[in-house]
């Protein structure tokens, strides 16, 4: 097998029996940043969104949640951020219950910008809510905009930007508080292939440069393999982790990586794991 490990968590099946790699991309044992154990999420109408979710994410990892619609990827992300409460089990983020850590940036599926505010004011928002004055925030906001290549768009309104540019503003807004953990909920799903590819590279560069931990929800096998140090494959009804596939290929991964045999093989393996999630569907839910 290529440099890909399989480990089944939250279920009893280990596809290949390899141990999960517990080192981050620098090769050093990293502290645990997120711990989820036996987490359930049951909505008010009785829908079991997630059941028995077990997951550990270490500092500096780039983890993708991959799975079919309704498998609880976004629910898991929202529970980590504290936006959704969990019904059972335990979640800790930086050692605290979710929602208590301020070191989190969140990028939504849509750019979610305030249409009445300029690009600068949109990016300034998280600092403004923390009570930072505009002059004091100026440097950080401009640096965040520069990091996504939008230095010249301070005074533009969201309606004047393309879809890709809006998403860059959204990323800049998530990064302006210099978080250690970045949660991204299918951020590029609505974008064209070229823009998506560029933004993939931008996110990967930010991850390396800022020593971030990223949890990235996606439907795309190719995206997850290209970006991640680990792909967490989830199954639906009820949502749960059925597989974790480490991606050992070295960073930085450039566009050339997409044309390599290793990448193709990793995509094949992840695709197969994804297909197998259909076998895990519990029709009673």
């Amino acid at each position: 097998m290529k440099s890909t490990n399989f480990l089944c968590r939250g279920s009893t099946r280990n596809l290949h029996g390899d141990d999960m790699n517990t080192e981050n991309n620098s090769g050093v044992e990293a502290p645990i940043q997120i711990e989820m154990s036996g987490v359930d999420k049951v909505f008010g109408n009785g829908t079991i969104a997630v059941r028995g979710l077990n997951l550990t994410v270490q500092q500096g990892e780039f983890v993708s949640f991959l799975g079919p619609s309704g498998c609880g990827k976004s629910t898991a992300l929202k529970m980590i951020s504290g936006l959704l409460s969990h019904s059972a089990g335990e979640i800790t983020v930086n050692g605290h219950p979710p929602g208590q850590s301020q070191d989190i940036g969140y990028v939504f599926q849509e750019a979610t910008l305030m249409p009445w505010a300029t690009v600068f004011d949109n990016v300034y928002l998280p600092l403004r809510l923390k009570g930072v004055s505009r002059p004091d925030a100026q440097v950080d906001v401009e640096a965040a905009l520069a990091s996504v290549g939008l230095s010249k768009f301070n005074d533009s309104y969201p309606r004047e930007l393309s879809g890709g540019m809006k998403m860059r503003v959204s990323i800049a807004r998530a990064m302006v508080t210099k978080p250690k953990l970045l949660l991204m909920d299918e951020p590029f799903a609505a974008l064209d292939e070229m823009t998506r590819s560029r933004l993939n590279n931008d996110v990967m560069a930010l991850w390396k440069k800022r020593d971030l931990t990223v949890i990235f929800v996606t439907h795309s096998v190719f995206e997850s393999v290209y970006l991640s140090s680990r792909v967490v494959v989830m199954a639906a009804r009820p949502g749960r982790v059925v597989n974790e596939i480490a991606q050992h290929d070295n960073y930085p991964r450039t566009e050339q990586y997409r044309t390599t045999a290793a990448y193709a093989e990793n995509c094949r393996v992840v695709s197969q794991a994804l297909e197998e999630t259909m076998d895990h569907v519990d029709i009673n839910h």
């Binding site: 936006l83 989190i104 969140y106 305030m114 928002l125 998280p126 403004r128 809510l129």
Partner: peptide
Amino acid sequence: NLRDMFTMYRASPWQRLRY
């Protein structure tokens, strides 16, 4: 989603109303 974002950044009721 914007509401969620304001919740995440712990906006006060006044900040939520104003911004």
